[in-house]
């Protein structure tokens, strides 16, 4: 890599950090005289009010502003937009401490611009499952709906949701979409691998037991590919005559370990998205496996 670039970048980074030092201290100091929750609310409240004013006028809200001092017990709630990320939820901020501020009364309802929170608690992303039907479980914003394609998940009043989906062998990518009442949307994608239990057809020496199995070792040749369609070659050693499965979300293959205990298989992943790494599992029929990351780098 270019040393000149590194030098220029490091200088720019140091100067930017230095410029932030003094200014951020001011803001940090302003938050140091109350409990953290109150501090943030106190610091942010005037800013939020201003934001509601400015953004409101920008999107056509009619706002009535009456300058006043708010007493602790009568602080009005201010609905504010929060960060647009897959991990945030809509919320309302109420100043809990006496703060000189401005009361804002909106003549039209506040607009909820925050996407609903959506998480998947089970199964884990990348999990390998042996059941054809799997129940996906997660949490979303209470009142939101969750769909997987055309299928609607059951969502309880606390936002806990669940839905059973049928898997196909290999990689399965499930996309869950949550919608809140305001129409905001959050999508989360999870990939699970369905590997049906192998009906073990033991190699010729059917008396072989798990402890007598030969060594299993798998390797990926490249880990990445610039050619289209992309591929990798997996090789290793295993029990002679046993079956080797190579499984990924974008391509799979099987081969058999030869009489000398070696295997080699070229697996194409034609649908692999450019520059997005994913896991490829190489597994033998006895359940022993190795995982490798693969990334398609077209044009590099």
């Amino acid at each position: 890599m270019s040393l000149e670039l590194d030098g220029r970048a490091r200088r720019a980074a140091e100067n930017l950090k230095a410029s932030v030092e003094g200014a951020s201290l001011l803001l940090a100091e302003r938050t140091s005289k109350a409990r953290p929750g109150r501090r943030l609310a106190a610091v942010l409240r005037p800013a939020w009010v201003a934001a509601v004013l400015i953004l409101g006028s920008a999107v056509g809200f009619a706002l009535v502003v009456e300058p006043t001092t708010v007493e602790p017990t009568s602080s009005p709630a201010t609905t504010v937009p929060l960060p647009t990320t897959s991990m945030t939820t809509s919320t309302a901020t109420t100043a809990a401490a006496p703060v000189p501020t401005t009361t804002v009364t909106a003549s039209s309802p506040a607009v909820d611009l925050s996407p609903p929170f959506l998480s998947i608690t089970s199964p884990e992303d990348g999990a390998t499952l042996e059941e054809k039907t799997v129940e996906f479980v997660g949490v979303t914003e209470p009142g939101a709906t969750v769909n997987a394609g055309p299928y609607r998940a059951q969502v309880d009043e606390k936002g806990n949701w669940r839905i059973k989906l049928v898997l196909t062998p290999g990689g399965n990518q499930a996309r869950f979409v949550a919608h809140d009442a305001a129409g905001n949307e959050t999508a989360v994608v999870v990939t699970v691998f369905y590997e049906p239990p192998v009906t073990t057809t033991m190699p010729a020496t059917t008396t072989t037991t798990q402890t007598e199995l030969g060594e299993f070792d798998a390797n990926a040749t490249y880990g990445s590919c610039t050619e289209d369609p992309p591929f990798d070659v997996y090789y290793g050693v295993g029990e002679p005559g046993s079956t080797i499965y190579v499984v990924s979300p974008y391509g799979s293959g099987t081969t058999t370990v030869n009489g000398e205990g070696h295997f080699e298989i070229q697996v194409f992943v034609p649908e692999a998205p450019p520059e997005e790494g994913f896991l490829v599992k190489v597994k033998d029929q006895y359940g022993r496996q190795e995982s490798f990351e693969f990334v398609f780098l077209p044009g590099i």
Binding site: A23, P46, A50, I54
Partner: peptide
């Protein structure tokens, strides 16, 4: 927009 509004009210300066 929020920061500019706050700066106007509190005369706090933006980052250099």
């Amino acid at each position: 927009a929020r920061a500019l509004a706050r700066i106007a009210v509190h005369r706090q300066e933006a980052l250099p």
